[in-house]
Design a protein around this nucleic acid. Structure first.
Lengths: 149, 149
DNA sequence: AACGATTTAATCGTGCGCGATATAACTTCA
DNA sequence: TGAAGTTATATCGCGCACGATTAAATCGTT
């Protein structure tokens, strides 16, 4: 005979199993992907979030800090120090918008612009490392975009 | 007429678009989920990675630091300080294994064990917040597990 | 028994990611 | 015009996440 308390415990054990948690699958996959990128980005002297910030600028430069924060879904408290590091690496320039002195405009330097070609190589090498068919990756990407928006 | 250099540039622009990057979709979704959990976990006084560590222990306790690292795919340099914080919160105990003094055994305290019931509530509230059908979540979870293993 | 190799955890430094807060610039509207 | 409210970025503190290194315990081989 099984008590109600035992049944509740069994339920908790089942529901809370790590391999049942979407949150852990997501957390863990994100960590793994960061680790996979690391050796590729080391060659460019970039961290993973710095690479994402550069992607935003390669798409369109110049952009304000706020626009970059919207694109990357990050706070200024994250972005400001990151951008300062990209600045001291010589990849971007930071300047106040003359039309609105509150805004800071981020623009690619020549060195930052030139890095785009190497980034293309990184993207290709990453795809090879994943060793997963493109349609599966596209499907996963679109499912992730829909999650918790 | 379009030069080869222009074509190469067009390719780079297309391939490197942020919305085409699986890595960004993953990074961004992971950040969003962490933000979604934060208010729920604040009620328990846990951070998101601490919650994951507790999931491991609720599944089976006691466990060594190494076993937890394998389950969570984390280095001791991440886990050791996190576990010390859980210890000072009174949720776990740390002791050396008498059979092998290199190992540190992590076990739930009564308070840590008691928190399991509240965690069940957190998991349910998170599911509600996501507002996504369970089969879609299960599918996404399994695809994430297969990624970059 | 002894010594080199391996295993286990801890420590340290760097770079996020964010909430809370601060500061300066702009806007509004009385 | 000028005081109050809003907006854009910066600063600070905390907790990860990891590579590199260290220290101690154990194992293996002779």
């Amino acid at each position: 005979m099984t008590s109600d308390a035992d049944k509740a415990l069994d339920k908790a054990v089942e529901v809370l199993r790590l391999d049942r948690q979407l949150c852990f699958a997501l957390y863990s996959a994100a960590n793994r992907v960061t680790r996979l990128y690391r050796p590729l980005l080391d060659a460019l002297g970039l961290t993973y979030p710095q690479y994402l910030a550069m992607l935003v600028l390669w798409e369109h430069s110049p952009r304000t800090v706020g626009e970059m924060g919207q694109a990357l879904d990050l706070e200024s408290s994250t972005l400001t120090p990151l951008l300062k590091r990209l600045e001291s690496a010589g990849l971007i320039a930071r300047s106040r918008d003359p039309d609105d002195e509150r805004r800071v405009i981020i623009s690619l330097t020549d060195a930052g612009d030139a890095m785009r070609d190497q980034a293309l190589g990184v993207a290709e090498q990453f795809f090879c490392k994943l060793d997963t068919p493109m349609p599966e990756l596209v499907d996963l990407r679109e499912r992730l975009k829909r999650l918790a928006v």
